[in-house]
């Protein structure tokens, strides 16, 4: 019998209890079990960052995390970031700068950028480039994404 794990965690501020197979990834759990499809599956290998989520305040690739390991932790996905003040600032900046084309990389980038700005308010371009190194975008060529994150970071530092 494959092991099942009973886990309890906080998801975007709401307590959740779930039973998951021990081998399941956090990404599969979010998308297939909980229906939160904002978090994307790009590569499944930690290379693209489309699956980025916040766990206990730090970003991780949810495709590399076991669902069972979510037990007792605090998860925030793009659905949670989107309704925060930081998320709104980022969304406005992404739209204003034309930083979205197909949009597949956008949720992961917004989660990573929100973490980056949280850690480095007013981040300069080098810090932003470094911070989003783990997020691939096939469409924009990054320029507009970097501009958008810089705009959001600047706004945050003026608060």
């Amino acid at each position: 019998m494959p092991a099942k794990c009973d886990i309890a965690f906080s998801l975007n501020g709401v307590k959740r209890e779930l039973t998951v197979p021990a081998g399941m990834s956090a990404l599969e759990m979010l998308r297939d079990r909980l229906g939160l499809t904002g978090t994307k599956y790009g590569c499944g290998e930690g290379e693209c960052g489309a699956c980025t989520i916040l766990v206990d305040g730090s970003t991780v690739n949810s495709c590399l995390m076991f669902a069972a390991d979510c037990d007792g932790r605090e998860l925030v996905t793009i659905e949670g970031v989107a309704v925060s003040a930081a998320g709104e600032r980022l969304r406005d900046a992404f739209v204003a700068n034309g930083a979205v084309q197909c949009g597949f990389c956008t949720p992961g980038l917004m989660v990573q950028a929100s973490h980056l700005i949280e850690r480095h308010p007013g981040a300069d371009e080098a810090t932003i480039r470094r911070g989003i190194e783990g997020n691939l975008c096939r469409c924009t060529g990054y320029r507009k994404i970097i501009d958008a994150v810089a705009a959001a970071a600047k706004e945050k530092s003026h608060e």
């Binding site: 021990a22 081998g23 990834s25 499944g44 690739n61 590399l64 076991f66 069972a68 390991d69």
Partner: peptide, 27 residues
Amino acid sequence: VLAGGTDLLPQTQAGRVHFQPTLMNVR
């Protein structure tokens, strides 16, 4: 043994490494 999982999860999903019957998360 499971720590961060950044090697273990992709290695097991690709079938390069097989799980033992007990998975122990040491976090």
